[in-house]
């Protein structure tokens, strides 16, 4: 198991956002977490790179193992954790820098590299998100001038440059049009060969299209977790069935 949680609870102040979550994510697969707004799916995602730490008043109990290491531990090294576990956000959020500087940001903060090595990282990262041909002549232009889809791909390239092995995606297509969404989904299938991907989405069709495993969350609980086709065709829990058939959500 790549990631495993044991009795994971999380509180924002007095509000409990995650309740006794026990789940295991497999390596080099796409796992989707679905559920209505406020069900705790983004919170769960942000446990894995400890981004919840940035919010004041967050308390966590339980254990989360990544490659066998408990990352909830206070002694956990956040820098190496976040290098290992990258994140793609809802809104494409490149830095107001050039395309090139966006991609090498991670390298710059994690230690010096020669210009040649950086150039190689930029090319490899852009190639892996299928942007190299489009942008190889625009590396010094501001990333703010790209299209939304290009920006989101660039953000993925930026985190690939740090060489993570887990990629967390928090509604990565919610600001994109259907064609762009389709192309990002294709990219995800491509990335699956090398990365373990967890995607949070409230778009059930997207979860059905792209994921291998799926989990359904409601009010902080992980209600159901199974192979995606099983979750969608023969849900075991009544609440899952009601959600995927559109009775609420």
């Amino acid at each position: 198991m790549k990631i495993e949680t044991k009795n994971l609870n999380l509180w924002y102040g007095t509000f409990q956002a995650l309740k006794e979550v026990n789940v295991a994510f497999q390596e080099k697969r796409i796992t989707a977490i679905i559920g209505p707004s406020g069900c705790g799916k983004s919170t769960l995602l942000r446990v894995f790179n400890r981004m919840n730490d940035l919010i004041e008043g967050v308390r966590t109990s339980g254990e989360v193992f990544i490659d066998g290491v408990n990352i909830i531990d206070h002694a956990a090294d956040l820098v190496s954790l976040r290098k290992q576990v990258g994140m793609v956000f809802q809104r494409p959020n490149p830095f107001p820098l050039s395309v090139y500087e966006n991609i090498v940001f991670g390298q710059r903060i994690h230690g010096a590299m020669s210009k040649g090595a950086l150039d190689e990282v930029v090319q490899q990262s852009l190639e892996s998100v299928l942007l190299w041909d489009e942008l190889k002549d625009r590396l010094n232009e501001s990333a703010m001038g790209l299209s939304l889809e290009q920006k989101q791909r660039l953000c993925i390239a930026r985190l690939i440059a740090v060489q993570p092995d887990i990629v967390l995606m928090d509604e990565p297509c919610s600001t994109l049009d259907p064609q762009a969404t389709q192309r990002i989904e294709e990219l995800m299938r491509e990335l699956k060969k090398n990365y373990t991907i967890i995607i949070v989405t409230h778009n059930m069709q997207q979860a059905a299209r792209v994921s291998d495993d799926a989990g359904f969350m409601l009010l902080g609980e992980l209600v159901e977790f199974a192979k995606t086709e099983d979750v969608f065709t023969k849900p075991k829990d009544k609440r899952t069935e009601d959600y995927i058939t559109g009775k609420y959500g």
């Binding site: 790179n49 981004m51 940035l54 956040l78 820098v79 190496s80 954790l81 976040r82 290098k83 990258g86 994140m87 956000f89 809104r91 959020n93 830095f95 107001p96 940001f105 991670g106 903060i109 994690h110 953000c155 930026r158 985190l159 740090v162």
Partner: peptide, 13 residues
């Protein structure tokens, strides 16, 4: 805030 968030998520202190 999103700039800071991304920076942290890439492992920056």
């Amino acid at each position: 805030y999103s700039f800071r968030e991304v920076s942290y998520s890439l492992g920056a202190s």
